[in-house]
Design a protein around this nucleic acid. Structure first.
Lengths: 145, 145
DNA sequence: GTAGTTGCAAACGCTTTGCGGCATA
DNA sequence: TATGCCGCAAAGCGTTTGCAACTAC
């Protein structure tokens, strides 16, 4: 699917692919577009409830699977055993997870990590397809408490 | 626990802390020291069997937990839902996971990633305690098939 | 009406816990 | 013999699957 930059375009793409624009689907796309941060199925429950939606857990998992398949969201692994997803239409970046308040900040590296990738390719004769880089520590607020 | 560099020293430390040196415990320490790569409980089954040991799954989990607590092994997260552990007495490094044959190679970066850490600290006012960096792609052998 | 979507129940797979029996020291 | 370790059974927990009912179009 060719990604649009706004929700209307995304929804049009889905519609013309023969999919239905249910309230849940539209709400999820909207939440992921607005929040632009990694969210788990558990996170989404309360967020959907404020919009008057209380989908079954199973439906939520299926919908997340659907949106991932359509390349609207992508998995983010924060090494705590929870599947999280975030909106996919954005430059490659990483995350800084506060171990205290659990806040997740975005991190964009200055020098492109092509540096990293080149190094490994030559050293291990390994062709990199993707990588994960996540930081864990204390955010600005929790650091000073 | 102060880590020794050989198995005898490690075992002595455990012994004087009031722990027993069971066959399983010694075998696991030996396997982790020799292999020096991330291993899951499932990986360990066959490796232990060749040594004549067939511990119960639960025992294995408990023993891994024990060795982690004693800081002999540490968790490695490869984002596939499996808990892996590797020997802890080694410099900080990363992994390159072949998505085809599942082989896991070590990766050591040339420039210390203090560069990375410094960048994030100033940019996000975030104090980094630890980080994860894993690469996924094709190893030298699988690349040419 | 048709096909995509939903909810319920149940299953799944890795991991953890309770507990009585076993074995290391 | 005393404490740590073991195996068995069962539970936990996030996630997945089967299937019938529902609903967007």
């Amino acid at each position: 699917m060719v990604l649009g930059s706004d929700q209307a375009e995304l929804e049009a793409d889905l519609f013309y692919s023969g999919h239905r624009l249910t309230k849940l689907r539209k709400a999820l796309i909207n939440i992921f577009m607005l929040r632009r941060q990694p969210l788990s199925a558990l996170d989404l429950g309360p967020l959907l409830k404020t919009r008057g939606l209380t989908p079954h857990k199973v439906t939520l998992y299926r919908e997340l699977d659907f949106l991932e398949d359509k390349q609207i969201i992508q998995k983010v692994d924060l090494a705590d055993g929870w599947q999280r997803f975030e909106f996919i239409d954005r430059p490659h970046h990483h995350h800084a997870v506060c171990v205290k308040c659990k806040k997740i900040e975005d991190v964009e590296l200055e020098h492109d990590n092509a540096d990293l990738e080149k190094l490994i390719k030559t050293k291990n004769n390994f062709q990199i397809l993707r990588h994960t880089l996540e930081f864990f520590g204390l955010c600005g607020e929790c650091k000073n408490v």
